[in-house]
């Protein structure tokens, strides 16, 4: 008998094992919900799949009578818009500041302590400041995502730039490159894939800040809806929304990974070789 640390599952077994927990959770929920509903048909806590389905149908596929819009898609597009702008600006800032502070000692001395300081401010603590100064509109929510994720990305990018072997930078100089050309042709292409993985890691935080901001002040959005229907204990709405958010997060992560693999084959072959 092999030691258990050396036993590798076959492909079908691996697939089965990864699906198993989901199936178990599904059936546990099904029985628990059935039992509770048998006892009290008005129970709100664990709605049946029927109820969840009709909630989805009502929100996603039925026109709102008053506004003629589909709430679910409206919420989705509002949230996606905020998170994409937020993460987009964050990564752009992360890239520029990280490259500057990583490569240029003068910029590092000037900016690095500030970035470190800002990254340690708990973003949620300054949410009131954002609402006060930027109002309750889109800007405050996007700003929260930026403040929450940009400093981390700046520091991440800076450390990646500094981890590039000094030999490469010297080699580029002996080939006649200026600071600008070293940034453009040696450093930038090498930290872009790292920026994408940094974005993937920041997505979790970005969703957290987005939903927090929407919960406090918004007129639409996935987080807003969840916190709105909480008042009526509408688990039949909350559950599909949570799963939908998870799915969106997964999809964004997947897209970023695939983009990176497509665009930077040299980076990923290095990864698998390690």
């Amino acid at each position: 008998m092999k030691k258990i640390m050396n036993i590798k599952p076959t492909k079908p077994l691996a697939a089965f094992l990864s699906l198993l927990p989901f199936v178990i959770i599904f059936f546990v929920y099904l029985t628990a919900s059935g039992e509770r509903l048998a006892e009290n048909p008005n129970d709100k806590l664990l709605p049946s799949f029927q109820q969840i389905y009709s909630a989805i149908d009502r929100l996603a596929f039925t026109e709102n009578k008053r506004t003629g819009e589909y709430l679910f898609w409206q919420d989705t597009s509002a949230s996606l818009y905020r998170i994409c702008i937020g993460i987009g600006i964050s990564s752009l800032l992360g890239l520029i500041v990280g490259l500057l502070t990583g490569l240029i000692p003068l910029a590092r001395s000037g900016l690095s302590p500030l970035v470190t300081f800002v990254s340690l401010v708990p973003p949620m603590a300054i949410l009131p400041i954002l609402f006060i100064s930027f109002g309750l509109g889109e800007l405050a929510k996007v700003m929260l995502i930026i403040i929450g994720t940009a400093p981390v990305m700046m520091r991440d990018m800076q450390s990646h730039v500094r981890q590039l072997p000094a030999e490469q930078l010297i080699k580029a100089q002996t080939l006649g490159a200026s600071t600008w050309l070293v940034s453009l042709r040696v450093i930038l292409p090498q930290i872009l894939p790292r920026l994408l993985s940094s974005m993937r890691l920041s997505l979790g935080a970005a969703w957290l800040f987005l939903i927090a901001a929407e919960a406090i002040a918004a007129q639409e959005g996935l987080g807003y809806r969840i916190f709105l229907v909480r008042r009526y204990m509408s688990m039949d709405v909350i559950f599909p929304y949570v799963i939908w958010i998870t799915l969106l997060a997964f999809l964004m992560d997947y897209l970023l990974r695939k983009t990176s693999e497509k665009a930077f084959p040299w980076y990923h072959s290095n990864e698998s070789g390690k």
Binding site: E167, Q168, I170, K171, L175, Q190, W266, Y267, N270
Partner: peptide, 30 residues
């Protein structure tokens, strides 16, 4: 360091994100 002096290190002398051709061409593109 400047273009008067060429260098070959023990390792990390080439750019991992460029092909062989690009690695050599970059010298004159600079």
């Amino acid at each position: 360091p400047d273009a008067d002096r060429g260098i070959v290190f023990q390792k990390y002398s080439v750019f991992p994100h460029l092909t062989v051709l690009q690695n050599v061409m970059i010298a004159d593109e600079f």
